[in-house]
Amino acid sequence: MLSAESAALIRATLPAVGGALDEITTRFYATMFAEHPELLDGMFNRGNQASGAQRRALAGSIAAFAGSLLAEPGTRPDALLARIAHKHVAVGVTDDQYTLVHKYLFAAITDVLGEAVTPDVAAAWDEVYWLMAGALIAQEARLCLEAQVRPGHPWRQWTVVERRDETADTVSFLLRPSDGAPAPRARAGQYVSVRVRMPDGVHQLRQYSLSSAPGDQVRRITVKRVRGNGAPEGEVSNLLHRTLEAGDELTLSVPFGDVVLDETDAPLALVSAGIGCTPMVSMLERLTGETSTRSVTVLHADRSPADHALRADTKRLVDALPEARAQFWYERDAAEEPGSRTGLMELDALELPADASVYLCGPLSFMREVRSQLLRGGIPARNVRYEVFGPDLWLADATA
């Protein structure tokens, strides 16, 4: 896939480029948004821009893709890009935007690295970029075709039929297509993008996992309000909490996401913390609807039972599955939930089957710790899949 000449140059320059990627991506975004401010209206999450999360995620994906091309030069790492492709189609990225990104990204590389970017080095990294972009464009075209949407136009209007307060900081919204047509196909574990107009007139997008059975005509998203606590509060989650009521309309994308319930009969472990429970509940809804006899272990950690969103739904669904069990951990007030444990999640004594399919969702630090416990317990790394809310910083930190 990557030419031998380019591979030699990428191998020689990857340490320098990788070490400067944070500065490169900082300059890239600053210049691109200065000249194309319209991209911040309904495309990029300005909260992630302000925190640097998007910049770090982009740097990590570029470094990981280049490293993968060097490690396995005869293959294209499409699996590595699947998460990005799903996110792109869910926010309306179009093919022409790859040319725009190329212009500003390579200008930033040249500005930061200066004379080190010879014509040959520039050509080698150009090859890497277009291999990555071409793979993404192909995947995104296929995803749009499967979802029966035009590239850049995944949107549809939905009507809120019910608002449910789940906890002090978590609300569920039950939604039905406003046009009365059938709801688009969804798979358990997928998310939708929500597009809202902010008080200053700028549109912002956020992704929320479906927390309902994927085949239902009425779909549910469960939104946790992001409080500031010393950092900027979540502007979209707080707006939805304050303003969205039954009868209101909301703009949603069709469902996307590559972390979906598998079709095997292998033992299943659904492991979550906080609002990471939402895709797990969707998976449980599907299993219950199919009267599955699959072995299912549900593991969840939270601050307290009162903070545990969808706790009653989780218990109801586990009780309905003949081979399911659940274990909860709470940092405080664990006595309020019979059978729960106090403290952080600890898996060493649970003896999960070595062939279990494991799904993780929650804060990144939680998922890293739990994944380490799972690997120590004999679960193969290939059996552990994770979902991240927001930019995927797992790769970014791994390649830092």
Rank of each mutant, 00 (worst) to 15 (best):
L69P: 10
W125C: 09
R83P: 09
W158R: 12
P73S: 06
Y104M: 08
C144T: 02
V93T: 10
A123I: 07
L113R: 01
Y104E: 06
H102N: 15
A108E: 04
P73K: 06
T118P: 14
R142H: 10
V89E: 02
L69S: 07
E115P: 12
E166H: 12
A116S: 12
K87E: 04
Q97N: 01
D96V: 02
E162Y: 06
P77Q: 11
A147S: 13
T110D: 15
L58A: 01
P154R: 07
L100N: 01
A63W: 00
L69N: 07
R163P: 11
V93G: 05
A57C: 11
E166S: 13
A85C: 05
P77M: 11
A147H: 06
L81N: 03
A116Q: 12
V161C: 15
W158F: 15
A116P: 03
D78Y: 14
W158M: 14
D111L: 03
G74V: 01
H102E: 11
D96T: 06
P154I: 05
Q97L: 05
R156D: 10
L58E: 01
G152Y: 10
L69H: 07
R164I: 15
G152W: 10
G134V: 00
E72D: 15
W130Y: 13
D96Y: 04
L143Q: 11
G74P: 06
D96Q: 07
F65W: 10
G67L: 13
R76D: 06
L80M: 14
A90T: 00
D96W: 02
A122D: 03
F106W: 04
P151K: 11
A59R: 00
A90E: 00
R156W: 06
